[in-house]
Amino acid sequence: MPLLEVDNLTVEFPTRRGILKALDRVSFTIDKGEILGVVGESGAGKSLTGAAIVGLLERPGRIASGQIRLDGSRIDNLAPEPLRRIRGRRIGTIFQDPLTTLNPLYTIGRQLVETMQTHARLSDSEARRKAIGWLERVGIPAAAQRIDAYPHEFSGGQRQRVVIALALCAEPALVIADEPTTALDVSIQAQIITLLKDLTRDHGTSVMLVTHDMGVIAETADRVAVMYAGRIAEIGPVADVVRRPAHPYTDGLMASIPSLEHRVDRLRQIDGAMPRLDAMPDGCRFHPRCPRAFARCTEQQPELMAAGATQAACWLHAVS
């Protein structure tokens, strides 16, 4: 059984001008210890998927239908209190900008201790000892002294290390990392990704890694999901998606990567723009930009279907 199962997840924003469907029947799974990369243009719904999983959709957003299961039990319909106990303890989250994700008024030690004590019975001294251990594990030098420092006394890269410690300190089974390196200096991005990869491997933690960096995905992830306009366009093992993309959109994304040794930081721009939520085209949502669109594409919406080693939502792979 997969650790996380997302099943036909649909997220809506009721607005004055009608209901906006920001995620439309998104389905995927993450196995224990697996790293799932998630890519897609800005606004594709990557962050929204993560927020829906941990129950932190911002009002008025809501899960309209679908199920989210963790270890086989549903977590999408939990009451606030049991859901809170899952956050941090079962599913950790790493945010994008380490300069703003730490409370400026508390020492990092206090923030670590509070997080651990929220989820486990720990004496103050035990929690502090463990906090120092976590700081050492994420590579903060002189952790025993630095534990009483405030966030502003750390560099951006160090702060992201602290954020990673905070996300992992209650030993969750799954970590959702939403663009964990986008805000960082290019020179330290690789270090942070390596750290995340090593720590999660050591603890057998699964990761949902949202990023714009295809190079990171190729080096880090086991499988990758490509999102487009609130849907999953293609999902499959990284090597197959990268080398033999089945969906024309993925194809466009990959075309710009000459080899995996040469990183491309931003996804290549495909002609045209992603449709707005209130002006979704009928049929395949990609058809206005798709070089291979044909008649059926404008009429019927494709669901994920087997396409070689991956699954793609594209009529090119329909077995008529």
Binding site: R89, D97, A170
Partner: peptide, 21 residues
């Protein structure tokens, strides 16, 4: 702010988030 969102994502109690943070 992000640090309040992060505090929620770590499962801190509402009391701690509202009054502490």
């Amino acid at each position: 702010t992000d640090y309040i969102k992060f505090a929620r994502a770590r499962g801190l109690t509402n009391r701690s988030i509202n009054f502490g943070h």
